[in-house]
Nucleic acid binder design. Structure first.
Lengths: 140, 140
DNA sequence: TTTATTTGTTACACTTACTGCAACAATTAA
DNA sequence: TTAATTGTTGCAGTAAGTGTAACAAATAAA
């Protein structure tokens, strides 16, 4: 599952939880609603739980619910919760090049450039809250 | 080979060609210099040739050379030449969702958002010329 | 205590994609 | 005719992704 797919899946689940709040919802109910396997969804939700975005409880009356207000949850923190690698990670070839060679210098150049792009994207995502997405969707 | 690796490989090769200009250079010479298999490099260079960035010639005195001034070549056109998919393509899950459902609306939302991000990145890359990279590298 | 439900995690078979390299026809100049 | 080079295809080996099942641990209800 690609990072971008995981991100959109997460937002789908979180929107569902926002609507159901404060009632807890099971992974299988959400999974059926958004069209994904419940095991896979639980993997994502457990990461969101570890990062304090949702709350999870086992047992008969258990399930998931939002732990923060939807206006306090932004895309960047969702992304960081579900992905170890830096946002929209880009890589360069590291091996088979000599020290201080032009190829090596270019590797550093691109690492810097990609890091910059990454920061731009993260800044953009920080400005987008779950609530703003819900509002936008409802007005269409 | 990831898109970002292809991009940095391309720039390494183009820098090498800029330095050698106007002498044509064989793929195996470039490949040895930047640490990549010559077959693979030829695949990349042939795409750059199809897009008018380099010139290629078969035969004994053949090889590759730049077809445009390095100040006239920008990262975005290099990227487009080597990659069919849109720059830094991001995808969303399309199947198993109902028409006009919230998940479907969110898919459209993310397609738009990712397209926006893509435009931002492309704009940034358009401003970076091969010559500006060479200048930067030489001053380090 | 027992039962039912749910999370969190692991495992696994299956498929797909990637990788590095070799090979070779086509082209071209010597 | 020969040698060098591009452009492209193929291929074996490896890695990564996918979808699903399974099950222990936790928890509440019966």
């Amino acid at each position: 599952m690609s990072a971008s797919t995981k991100l959109s899946t997460s937002v789908k689940a979180l929107c569902y939880l926002a609507k159901a709040y404060p009632k807890p919802v099971s992974s299988s109910e959400i999974a059926a609603a958004i069209g994904i396997n419940s095991s896979k969804l639980r993997m994502i939700l457990s990461m969101l739980a570890k990062n304090g975005i949702v709350e999870s409880n086992s047992g008969t009356t258990g399930g998931f619910k939002l732990k923060k207000q939807s206006s306090e949850i932004d895309l960047q923190e969702i992304y960081c919760a579900i992905e170890d690698r830096k946002a929209f990670h880009l890589d360069v070839r590291k091996d088979s090049i000599k020290k201080n060679s032009l190829p090596e210098k270019l590797n550093f150049y691109f690492l810097d450039l990609f890091a910059e792009v990454q920061v731009d994207i993260e800044d953009k995502m920080k400005k987008i809250t779950l609530q703003s997405i819900i509002n936008k969707i409802n007005n269409n």
